[in-house]
Every structure is written in structure tokens, then in C-alpha cells.
């Protein structure tokens, strides 16, 4: 039976803590830019990660590998953790934890594995009003 390539999207959930603050800005500038998002003790979100990837129908092995990849790269290091601390520990420059930075770093972490060649898009949903996404440059294009 011929196999058909489809674009599949899976949703993963990460509960994280963060605080928006830039090392390149003064305290007053940080307050002006980030306002309540730089509250002294930080705050948290339940981030949803939507990963879209190309897969042949009934390729259950690939789907399992993708789940494991997300678990290893994103869920285990980040869920129930402070994103600021994780960014610091992995050496992210000026580790601001805006949605823009989070989706960038998530994409960069995933791209280290050749499995990411089947990845098309990653979206990080921060709240019901905000989301951030990135398209992978993959060979499936």
C-alpha cells in the first residue's frame, strides 16, 4: 500500500516559571519595558508547544521518536522549572524569557538532532491571546 506524507501537529504542555528582565537594561528601563512581567518573584504559565512535522501515514515509530525528542529536549529540562534558570544554565546570552526568545531557544535545541529534518513549525502558546512561532528550514520543503 502506498504511503502518504502528511503534516501532523502534536501538542505538548509545559508548566514553567519565568520573570522578564534584561541584563542590558537598567532597573527603570526594565520596569518600563516589562512592567508587571518583571515582578520580583516572577510568575508562571502553562505553555503549550505545538510541533508540526512531516510523517508518512502509519509511521508510528517516527511519532514515538518525536515524542521522546520533545520530552528529552523540552519537557524534562523546562517543565516545572524556572525558564530563567534553565536559560542561564545552558548559557543563553542575556537570557530574557519572552515568548520570542523561548520559541527561538526551543527551536535551536530541537535542531541539534537530525530528527528535526522532518520538523516544519514550532509554536509556543503563552496565553490564550499570545503565541510565537518559528518555521524550521527542513529538507521536506
Amino acid at each position: 500500500m502506498a504511503k502518504t506524507m502528511i503534516l501532523k501537529t502534536k501538542k505538548y504542555s509545559l508548566h514553567c516559571h519565568h520573570r522578564l528582565i534584561s541584563k542590558q537594561l537598567s532597573h527603570q528601563e526594565n520596569l518600563k519595558v516589562f512592567s508587571k512581567c518583571m515582578g520580583q518573584y516572577g510568575h508562571g504559565h502553562e505553555y503549550l508547544v505545538r510541533l508540526s512535522f512531516f510523517i508518512q501515514s502509519n509511521d508510528f515509530e517516527l511519532e514515538k521518536k518525536v515524542d521522546q525528542h520533545i520530552d528529552d529536549c523540552l519537557i524534562t529540562p523546562f517543565s516545572y522549572q524556572s525558564i530563567n534558570q534553565v536559560f542561564d544554565s545552558i548559557g543563553v546570552d542575556n537570557s530574557i524569557t519572552t515568548g520570542e526568545q523561548i520559541v527561538k531557544i526551543f527551536a535551536l535545541l530541537l535542531q541539534k538532532d537530525p530528527l528535526s529534518e522532518c520538523y516544519y513549525k514550532i509554536e509556543v502558546v503563552e496565553t490564550r491571546k499570545n503565541s510565537f512561532f518559528h518555521f524550521f528550514e527542513n529538507k521536506a520543503d
Binding site: 515568548g99 520570542e100 520559541v103 527561538k104 527551536a107 535551536l108 535542531q111 490564550r128 491571546k129 499570545n130 503565541s131 510565537f132 512561532f133 518559528h134 518555521f135 528550514e137
Partner: peptide, 13 residues
């Protein structure tokens, strides 16, 4: 690989 641009979506009602 560098990621220089990010897409951002905002919802309003």
C-alpha cells in the same frame, strides 16, 4: 543556525 526573526500572534475580540 541563527534565528533572526520570530513570528508572533496576538488575538483580539
Amino acid at each position: 543556525m541563527l534565528i533572526d526573526k520570530v513570528y508572533l500572534s496576538r488575538k483580539i475580540y
